Amino acid sequence: MAEIKEKICDYLFNVSDSSALNLAKNIGLTKARDINAVLIDMERQGDVYRQGTTPPIWHLTDK
């Protein structure tokens, strides 16, 4: 899980924002549900936040 978090942070640092599906595909996974639990956990920790569009767009925080 730590490896996936690191990949998410690296990708969002370079791209600035992404949907869960696009993010999953760009870090080597196939479906948004493969990454949603990790994104929600990271959101609780304050590492990422989502804009409430459908589907949500994920961003890194300034943390």
Rank of each mutant, 00 (worst) to 15 (best):
M1S: 12
M1K: 14
M1D: 07
M1A: 06
A2Q: 13
A2K: 14
A2Y: 08
E3A: 07
E3I: 05
I4F: 02
I4T: 09
K5Y: 01
K5E: 02
K5C: 00
E6L: 03
K7M: 12
I8D: 15
I8K: 03
I8V: 02
C9P: 09
C9K: 15
C9D: 02
D10L: 03
D10I: 04
Y11D: 04
Y11R: 07
L12K: 00
L12E: 11
L12W: 00
F13K: 15
N14A: 12
S16D: 07
S18Y: 02
S18K: 03
S18E: 04
S18W: 04
S18M: 02
A20V: 05
A20R: 03
L21I: 12
L21C: 11
L21K: 13
L21S: 13
N22P: 09
N22E: 14
N22Y: 06
L23T: 06
A24F: 03
A24Q: 10
A24N: 02
A24C: 10
A24V: 03
K25L: 06
K25G: 04
I27L: 13
I27T: 06
I27A: 05
G28D: 10
G28P: 09
L29T: 10
L29S: 10
L29H: 08
L29W: 02
L29N: 13
L29K: 04
T30I: 08
A32E: 14
A32G: 12
A32Y: 12
A32H: 10
R33S: 15
R33M: 14
R33P: 09
D34P: 04
D34H: 03
I35R: 03
N36Y: 09
A37N: 09
A37V: 01
V38Q: 08
L39S: 09
L39M: 08
I40V: 12
I40K: 12
I40Y: 13
D41L: 00
D41Y: 00
D41K: 08
D41Q: 09
D41I: 00
M42T: 02
M42A: 05
M42W: 01
E43K: 01
E43L: 00
E43P: 01
E43S: 01
E43C: 01
E43M: 01
E43G: 04
E43Q: 05
E43V: 00
Q45H: 12
Q45C: 12
G46S: 03
G46V: 03
D47R: 13
D47Y: 12
D47E: 15
V48A: 08
R50T: 06
R50A: 09
R50W: 02
R50Q: 13
R50L: 02
Q51C: 13
Q51M: 11
Q51A: 10
Q51D: 15
Q51N: 12
G52T: 02
G52D: 11
T54Y: 06
T54P: 02
P56T: 12
P56V: 11
P56R: 02
P56N: 00
P56D: 05
P56K: 04
I57N: 07
I57P: 05
I57L: 08
I57H: 10
W58P: 06
W58D: 05
W58H: 08
H59P: 04
D62W: 05
D62C: 10
K63A: 12
K63L: 03
K63E: 09
